[in-house]
Amino acid sequence: MSVKLDGNIFVTGTNRGIGLELVKQLAEKTGVKSHIYACCREPEGTGAEALRQLATQYPGKITIIKLDTSDEDSISAAVHTVSERISDAGLNLLINNAAINKPPIPAALADTGKKDMMDVYETNVAGPFLLTKMFLPLLQRAAEKDSSGEGDKMSCRRSAIINISTLISSMEKCPETFPMAQMYPYRTSKAALNMLTRCQAEDFKSHNILVTAIHPGWVRTAMGGEQAPMTTEDSVLSMLSVMPSLSNKDSGMLLDFEGNRIPW
């Protein structure tokens, strides 16, 4: 499979799970002109060892950026660092992958407090909101650089925001997914992320910036658990097969890892 993505790519939550696999496959499959900014809270910590190994394996293609998506100052510093590096080139693809779940699954109502709700919302919604807001000038710059012919068509190769969401954010699907895990903070935060996706899609369409939410599947990660049917490799392979095909019709939508629309 050839992933037709290129340019400057910024990915959050990359020290493990889906984020780490995104960096790995993007490094393997994107063009020589691509550069990946891989973000995590503690780049020098033991939890980021696999990410550091990837950066060593692909010298000059991966830059590790310190980022805590729950901290506005950290977000501002990361955006400033990347802005200085990419200058006039612009940012082609922002993947908001970082997310937390509190309290531990099943996160039943009786176990969930106000702090859980606020902490999860801060990371899963406010973080992507601030990142996108601060990166907007660079996303606009990338969109403007490709403004001829097919350039009027939205795409992940040109200028796009991908918000990693979930099937369990769907209100219509809630009756069938709720028994598996109640997860009040996580579900409601991802439903809010979907609305953020929808709002930004409307706001940014005049700039030809694509904004789409994608459900990666039920994946075998620290959050997904060992019983999950999908590996991170298969999930990311599927998502990276879908992303290059996204266009105007997909902006503001919630899709699954195969590109099918999920009802709100």
Rank of each mutant, 00 (worst) to 15 (best):
V242Y: 06
G47D: 09
E72W: 10
S148D: 13
A98F: 05
L93D: 04
A107H: 09
A191V: 05
C40H: 13
E122T: 14
M230A: 12
S206I: 02
A191D: 02
A228Q: 04
L91E: 07
D116K: 13
I168S: 10
Y58M: 02
P229D: 08
D152F: 09
M117Q: 05
D119F: 01
S189E: 02
S148M: 11
M243S: 02
L91P: 05
S2E: 13
E226C: 03
S155D: 00
L138P: 04
E233Q: 15
T232L: 09
S235F: 08
V120Y: 05
G225S: 11
T56K: 14
P137Q: 03
Q25L: 15
L109H: 07
S206P: 00
V79F: 05
M134K: 15
K66H: 04
T30W: 05
E44G: 13
K66T: 09
K115R: 12
K115G: 00
L136W: 10
N208C: 08
S206H: 07
C199Y: 14
L26I: 09
E72N: 12
R198T: 11
L94V: 01
L193C: 10
K33N: 15
N124V: 06
P263K: 12
G225T: 09
D71Q: 07
K145E: 12
I105M: 14
T46P: 15
A142K: 03
T46W: 06
A143R: 05
E172V: 15
E150P: 06
V32M: 12
L67H: 08
H207E: 11
G17R: 01
P179M: 03
T231H: 05
I75L: 09
K66M: 04
L255W: 01
I161N: 05
Q200Y: 11
M180R: 11
A192G: 02
D116Y: 10
E122M: 11
D116I: 07
C174T: 10
T177M: 08
E28I: 01
Q53F: 06
P179G: 02
I86G: 08
R41S: 15
A191F: 04
T69K: 07
T123P: 11
T197S: 01
